[in-house]
Design a protein around this nucleic acid. Structure first.
Lengths: 159, 159
DNA sequence: GTTAGTGCAAACCTTTTGCAGCTCT
DNA sequence: AGAGCTGCAAAAGGTTTGCACTAAC
């Protein structure tokens, strides 16, 4: 089915919605994942073996400019690539487990409050925000506690 | 003067505080700026012409691991480098002007509230956060309004 | 004296650019 | 026909690695 608002979003100034771009948008949107350019390229190649890595980068740039996707760093927990996701209506933060790479999303009110304050107090016109929180997920938190015990016979903390 | 808590912070596990590292720490700390590896290298070379770019990268990595400095992306407003600053006691966000590159810091309560919620609601053990807000500073906001007028004779918005 | 750190050169990974041919409209 | 897009090859930007020598503790 022909995408709805996407057409308009791109067509803004002579940007065409080609076969390749459709594939890429579908992947970014459909997967619900946070893909980096290389993963996106690998997946796209399955649908069109001719599709070039360069086209992926060029398309991502366009999508970004058009406000269709957001670029993330995800704390660079796995190299220096960027990750991409469909821009949601709702602003949110990404919470990354530094041990297993699991990613959670946080939608709390403080995000909006912060934006409001930056606009009012600093006088900025906010265009985009990127909030990333690195830590250990419940699972890895437990594993780390174990590892510490095994690794160096932790004395029971006087607490 | 010999740095205070820094010694301890590094000496944790056999990390030496060499002449080169002292120079780098002084620059990061003293400048109060947000320097990237290359700028840091250029400045460090003035104090020690032999100091190598590689040493800068290796030292930054150590400082990061030791919790002495924080790594920032600053919305990649000027390439894909990383920027570094002394880790402050007080968590804060960076607000970047996408037009002139000016950087402001934001210390509001929502930052702490957000962290609290991520720990309670998602059960994460938060280690570090990185909040970046891109937009237009008051000055550039005004300039942009002008540019728009000149560029395309905006009709007075019915508002 | 030992262990860690440095400089140099070369490699690496991610992303961008130049250009000729292709494709939507 | 014409503007925009693609693929390919090559380059660029930022960072890391291997190794022999040097310096800190």
């Amino acid at each position: 089915m022909p995408p709805t608002g996407i057409q308009d979003s791109l067509r803004g100034r002579g940007v065409r919605l080609t076969r390749q771009r459709r594939i890429l948008l579908d992947l970014i949107d459909g997967s619900g994942l946070h893909l980096d350019a290389e993963s996106l390229y690998q997946l796209a190649k399955e649908k069109d073996p001719k599709l070039n890595r360069v086209t992926v980068y060029r398309s991502l740039k366009l999508f970004k400019e058009g406000g269709l996707v957001d670029e993330l760093d995800l704390m660079h927990h796995s190299g220096d690539q960027h990750y991409y996701e469909t821009r949601l209506k709702q602003e949110h933060a990404h919470v990354i487990c530094l041990r297993c790479g699991r990613i959670e999303e946080y939608f709390g009110e403080p995000l909006r409050e912060m934006r409001r304050q930056v606009e009012l107090d600093l006088g900025f016109e906010v265009q985009l925000t990127r909030t990333e929180i690195g830590g250990y997920c419940p699972h890895c938190k437990a594993l780390r506690a174990q590892e510490t015990k095994v690794g160096q016979a932790v004395p029971p903390a006087a607490n």
